[in-house]
Structures are given as structure tokens and as C-alpha cells.
Design a protein around this nucleic acid. Sequence first.
DNA 1: AGAAAAATCATCTTTTTTAATGATTGTACA
DNA 2: TGTACAATCATTAAAAAAGATGATTTTTCT
Lengths: 204, 204
Amino acid sequence: MKTGVFIVDDHYMVIEGIRSLLQNEKDIEWLGHAMNVASCHAFLKQQLPDIILMDVNLPDLSGIELCKEVRQLFPSVFVLGLSTFNQRPVIQNMIDNGASGYILKNATKEELLDAIGTVMKGKSFLSFDAALSMKDPIDKAPLITRREKEILQLIAEGLTNAEIGEKLFISIPTVNTHRKSLLEKFGAKNTAALISKASKSGIL
Amino acid sequence: MKTGVFIVDDHYMVIEGIRSLLQNEKDIEWLGHAMNVASCHAFLKQQLPDIILMDVNLPDLSGIELCKEVRQLFPSVFVLGLSTFNQRPVIQNMIDNGASGYILKNATKEELLDAIGTVMKGKSFLSFDAALSMKDPIDKAPLITRREKEILQLIAEGLTNAEIGEKLFISIPTVNTHRKSLLEKFGAKNTAALISKASKSGIL
DNA sequence: AGAAAAATCATCTTTTTTAATGATTGTACA
DNA sequence: TGTACAATCATTAAAAAAGATGATTTTTCT
């Protein structure tokens, strides 16, 4: 019984790379690819793969949503995230939404096969170890609340506390409180460092 | 006479994808790949390719530097940048440093061959058209000076004007002047917006 | 060599952020 | 059902950034 593999990624060369890696594998059947959410939907109406390799950031921006949907509609279909580095928060988000793990785009053929095998056994595959062993510094994003995120985004847009307060119908001191907890949670000395770290960690 | 192609990219799957796309081309000889600047250097000591496909952001962070070096040391070697979207400023930087153009990682086989052919004729290949037709909003980065960039980075790290002045041996008003021209060039209302825009445009 | 751009410094005012403390009201969850 | 935690508001003060103007010295490029 072959494992049906489908891939969703907006980079043709990555699709081609994975296809090339998997094409001679006896246990794997290449079902095709989609380069956006819409065509992935279209495919799933026709046929269900065993596993979907899914880029964590698609042009539609809703890779996380897609993962959630797939897992809800078709619980038998496993999702394995495909990512580059410094996308830890996005990956976490994807796993929270039902992905069975993720694999880095610079993984070797062996790692890829290992990941597919592991996931098909119902286990999860995380290559955090590989990521951690890289020198690339991964700023892990702190957990922030809905309100804090909302305010963080407005700060990044350049609004002052007064403007944010007006927009959200809250007082300036309140905005300030959230701002301070953001600074603390991110370990940032000031707004500049805050926005910089938030950007790097993928929240913005 | 075959065209010798070498690739520098930190994503194994992209390397594999391009190899797979090019392997049956009669006019192209696959010379190998490097996943970082160091091993690219090592290769160039042994053999000179006709064209190097080079990822714009390598783990060493010095893709632009590498491009510059290669073009200076070996003017006969063409460099074609490999990029994803929203990296316009980085690409521009690479072209300013001698790259003959760039191609998106979601390009088709035809586009890739076209790009290689065009570059080998000594022309430049830019897939800006393709990029522009995408809905992905590209924040084009303003041209900033070396000094401004230096200060921008220190601001992003959370240093105050006084600290920056001390570090760079310049006065606080000077730091302020640069800061203001950064705000103006980026069209940002304040530091938060500045860092946010700079991050999005890939400068940080 | 000369023009343009970059980098430097200064003064002064206003606005905004940061810090330090304290307190109340919901609400989710064990 | 009580205990975190989130979200709200307040006061006061110090630090920092932003805005306005003007000027000099280097670099860089043509």
C-alpha cells in the first residue's frame, strides 16, 4: 500500500525538488501539487491523499487556515509543514491547528522520508533539533494576548498611544499598560526593539 | 559548448528542484552546489562555472557580498539571483553588486532556461514583471546611505540616540539628523513605523 | 576640479514614550 | 468556587524622540 503524497507550495522549484526526491520511492505515490489554497481545495474534492506537505506561508497567507480546514474536514489526511528557518511561531501555530509536524526545506532526502514515515505511523515529526543546532538565531515569540497583538499591530503602523486609545475606545493609560507588557514579554528595551523582534518572530 | 551551472542555496529542496529541472538539458552541465558561502569559495578555487544561481539570502547573510566578490575576482562568471517575493530591495542590492538579474523560485522550467540563456548572452534578466503582476504588495525600500543603515540597525536593536552616538563616536544631534532622514525616506511617522517598514522591505 | 550628496554639529520646543505604583473588574479554567 | 490572568483606568515624573532651522565639513561622482 503506497502512501499518497500531495504538496502545496507556492515555489515551483521546491515542488520540483520534492518530486524529484520522491519519484523513485516504491512506497510513495506522487499525487500532484497545488500552488495556492484554491487549487488545493479543488484537488481534495477529487481525491484524498494520505499526507499533504504544506508550505507554512502560502501566497493566500492562509496556510494555517488551510491546515485547520483539512484536518477538520478530512481527519484521515495528515499534514506535514514545510518551512524555512526563523518561522518558529508560524510553525507552532500550524501544529496547534492539526499539523503532524514540520520539516525544513533544506532537509535531506533521508530526513524527508523519515518524516513521512513517522507521520504515517500517526506520530509527530519535529525537526526542532535540526533547527536548534543551526547557528541561525531563532527568536521564539512570547505568548501575547489578543488585545496585546491588536495594540502591537497599531504601534507598528505608527499610531501613538492617544490614537490607539481613540481607535479602540480605551484610555491612554490602558494602552500604555499593554505596551509595557509587550515590552516585557519580548524583552525589548523600547519600541524600536519591540517592533524589530516582533517582525523577526513573524508576528507582524 | 555546454553552459556550466553552479548553485548556491541553503535549501536542499530548491537545489534538488533546479537540478531536476536542468538535468536533461543538453546545453547545460550541472557542476554542483554549495549551501553556504564558504563551500562556494572552496568550489571556485577548483573550477569556474559559466553561471552561478545564487540565493539572495544565505545563512551567512552575505549573499550580496559573495556576489560582489565573485564578480570582482571572476568577471567571466555571471550571477543570477534566486529569490522569493517581497525581497525587492535585496535583489536591487544584488544587481547593484554585479548580478545579471534574478529569477523567482516559483518560476517554471521555461523561465529558468530563458533566464540562463539570456544571461549567457551577456544580457540581464529581470522577472520584475512577474513579481509586479502578483498581488503580493511590495514595499519598495528607499535608498539609504551606509551611515543611515548603520544607525537604522542600532535603532532596531533598541539603542537610544545617546547610546548610538557613543558607539559611533558622533554627537547626539547627528544621530538625530540621520534618524529624521530615515523617517522621511521611509515615510514613517515614528520609530515604530520605521522599523516595521524597514523589516518588511528586507533591510533589517 | 567642481557639483551633489553625505555626514557632521548646534539650539530650542513640543510631543511621546517609559517608569514606577496601585487598583478594579471581568473571565476562563482547574 | 476560587485563583490566575486579562483588560481596564489613574497619577506623576523622567527620559527620549520628533519637529523646525541653520550651518560646516567630507565624500563621492561626473
